[in-house]
């Protein structure tokens, strides 16, 4: 076993500057829908930022939130497009980091609870979604969240389940799954494999628009109250590295994005200002359901 450490040491010492992690300003972004062709889509955003900021800008196509948060903490990425929960988790680990902008839609984001016909929870679409009361009859059915670390697919739905049903999802439902992805949640509930599921409202609307949903089989039965979601988080030490006023420049550049092809990568209609206080509620929610510890 002396061999492995030696090899590792050799590899490290011989290593050149790799394709990533050089002295350039680096960001990562994981969109809440359509994670394909990340490099191509966000490469454009990188070029835009490079033009605006006058420094070399790199994009790293990380898809795992845990990896993205760690990279933010390691100072390998200085800017990241995070969901509300992962943003809170990341900023908690990097003192001085700030939320600087959010998507226009992210000021009033929401999750839908969707159910399959076989659950007996559909009401034939009589009431508008916004007026529907929380479906207490959901208890005892099978239920699927999205990814474990998702704000719209896990955190907020679980919070309201606990609030209305009075106990943890594992006790409230016959079975609780984590589909890992909003698209999969829709597919699973549409097939009736799970009776009820929680999904990002934007992904649901995109699936509806693309005619991928059979409303005879699956419908929205409830929507959560609105909450803040995706945001740009920036490390606090960028000014020291790239000069005074750099973080202000980054913020201005993001808020100024108007090109549809750039906004389409996220996809959002515009970026607006945000700060850490906007996500205090997210932090408290995560503490309330035991996803993060009080610090």
């Amino acid at each position: 076993m002396r061999l492995l450490p030696t090899l590792v040491a050799l590899l490290v010492s011989f290593s050149l500057v790799g394709p990533i992690g050089a002295e350039s300003f680096t960001f990562t972004a994981i969109p809440d829908q359509d994670a394909s062709r990340l490099q191509q889509r966000f490469g454009q955003v990188a070029s835009y930022l490079q033009e605006q900021l006058g420094v070399e800008v790199n994009y790293i196509p990380v898809k795992s939130y845990a990896a993205a948060v760690t990279a933010f903490r390691n100072n390998q990425v200085q800017l990241a497009w995070f969901g509300a929960l992962s943003g809170v988790q990341a900023r908690q680990r990097v003192p001085g980091s700030r939320a600087i902008a959010q998507g226009y839609e992210d000021q009033f984001f929401k999750s839908y609870f969707i159910a399959h016909r076989s659950s007996g929870l559909l009401d034939g679409g009589s009431a508008a979604v916004a007026n529907k009361p929380f479906p207490l009859a959901m208890a005892g059915h099978t239920f699927t969240f999205g990814a474990k670390g998702s704000t719209s697919g896990r955190l907020m739905p679980e919070y309201y389940i606990r609030q209305y049903l009075g106990q943890a999802p594992q006790q409230s439902f016959r079975r609780v799954g984590f589909s890992g992805d909003h698209t999969r949640t829709i597919a699973l509930v549409a097939s009736g494999a799970y009776e009820v599921g929680a999904v990002n409202y934007q992904v649901w609307q995109a699936a509806l628009a693309a005619n991928k949903v059979d409303l005879q089989e699956v419908q929205v039965i409830w929507q959560t109250p609105t909450y803040p979601d995706y945001q740009w988080s920036l490390r606090g030490d960028v000014d020291r590295r790239w000069g005074q006023g750099f973080s202000a420049k980054v913020k201005a550049a993001l808020l100024a994005i108007k090109q549809p092809e750039l906004l389409g990568a996220f996809p959002r209609s515009a970026f607006v200002e945000a700060d850490n206080a906007d996500y205090e509620a997210t932090r408290e929610t995560a503490i309330a359901i035991g996803l993060i510890d009080e610090s």
Partner: peptide, 24 residues
């Protein structure tokens, strides 16, 4: 490798499957 920012075949495959792009 995809999770550490170096997309590979497996990474693209996983992404396409979870997004339901079965042709890709």
């Amino acid at each position: 490798l995809g999770f550490v920012g170096l997309p590979t075949l497996g990474f693209y495959l996983e992404t396409a499957l979870s997004e339901g792009y079965y042709g890709e």
